[in-house]
Design a protein around this nucleic acid. Structure first.
Lengths: 205, 205
DNA sequence: AAGCGATGATACTGGATAGTATCATTTCCG
DNA sequence: CGGAAATGATACTATCCAGTATCATCGCTT
């Protein structure tokens, strides 16, 4: 009777599904949507192609599943915890974490793919924006608004300031990485971006 | 003997080539690289498919030709002329022109496609970055440095400030358009971006 | 151990499309 | 007008790949 076969949270189904999504994630991130072949995905997942199709009706469905999964993992709880300190320190911590996320290899590839495929799958672009960039903006904006009402900050438009802050963190380095012009972000560049963004809010110059 | 058949600048060859590139540009911008079929391109150019292949060895070559052509047209001389006025006015004019360029439908599509294909064609990413974004940054940086040495501005790192200025102009609206989340940029949003960027340099707050 | 559902291996179908071959036709030149 | 080069029309080849069909096999439940 094993241990509660019915009530068990993780079924064989979930395990297989996870390994398929995992393999597909690797292949999609490496070759993009068109470039990924279902045979390769099946091999990467250590699974037969038929099994892939038993879990996902089509390549599009599988792709959507992978993107959804990736979007859920982008932002962890650490990020929000960064904002619990005092303003200047909180912002620097938040910024450091954001830069690490933004410039991670997988994140760059995800941007590339979603931008590429958002014409064909408009829902995908919206899903990604909402669960990635928009979530970060909202988190920071809420923080700034909180400090605004406590008078520890005095910003005309906190939401806009939040966007500007994050925009300065991305900077052109992000575009250069999306274009393959630049391979990595040096610690020096990261610090410079962070300084620029923080100074933008505190007005130091 | 007509008008100097030999010395004539525009040959039949050039005309045909231009119409092929023109047709290809439309199709590539509408459907992306993979999505564009050579038959459709030939039809759009009003030309036989064989003729396309007589001018370009392969789809890749044709694509590269189109991107090169588009890159050359992105930045016109007007942009540089904007910087001939006095600082605040010059920057506003430059910014307005930049926003118009950045958010034009074709520019957005170009970004999308180049970002998508830069993994497969790394040279393309570099070509685009150099002749588009980098050219704009360099132009603005030179302007800021000029004013720095005249003491009409006092910036620690003009090059970085130029990047930040342009980055603030793009803002998240640009990403939203790349993702298809947002269709157009309202005049109100454009003005807000411009204000934000100009204030970032002049420190007003 | 029997039986059943889930999985694997593999070959196949059908459609799309890059690139080519062939020959008819136009266009431009002297 | 005559001839050569450029172009058009069209059919063809070869390849790649999503999705399917078939049947053998594995592993768990009872």
């Amino acid at each position: 009777m094993a241990s509660g076969a019915v009530a068990s949270a993780v079924t064989r189904f979930d395990v297989k599904r996870a390994s398929i999504v995992g393999g597909a994630k690797d292949v999609f991130l490496r070759h993009g949507f068109e470039g990924a072949s279902m045979d390769e995905i099946a091999a990467a997942a250590g699974v037969s192609k038929m099994t892939v199709y038993r879990y996902f009706r089509s390549k599009e469905q599988l792709f959507a599943g992978v993107i959804r999964d990736l979007c859920e993992r982008i932002i962890d709880e650490d990020l929000e915890r960064m904002l619990e300190r005092r303003p200047e320190e909180a912002l620097r911590g938040f910024a450091r974490k954001m830069v690490a996320i933004l410039f991670a290899r997988d994140t760059i590839e995800l941007h590339r793919i979603v931008i590429a495929e958002s014409r064909r799958f408009p829902a995908l672009g919206r899903l990604f924006y909402k669960s990635g960039p928009e979530a970060c903006i909202a988190m920071l904006a809420a923080y700034l608004e909180r400090h605004n009402s406590r008078r520890s900050l005095n910003l005309r438009n906190p939401r806009r300031t939040a966007e500007e802050f994050l925009e300065l963190l991305r900077g052109y380095a992000h575009l250069r990485m999306l274009l393959g012009v630049q391979k990595t972000l040096s610690a020096r560049e990261a610090e410079a971006s962070i300084d620029g963004a923080v100074q933008h809010i505190f007005g130091a110059r």
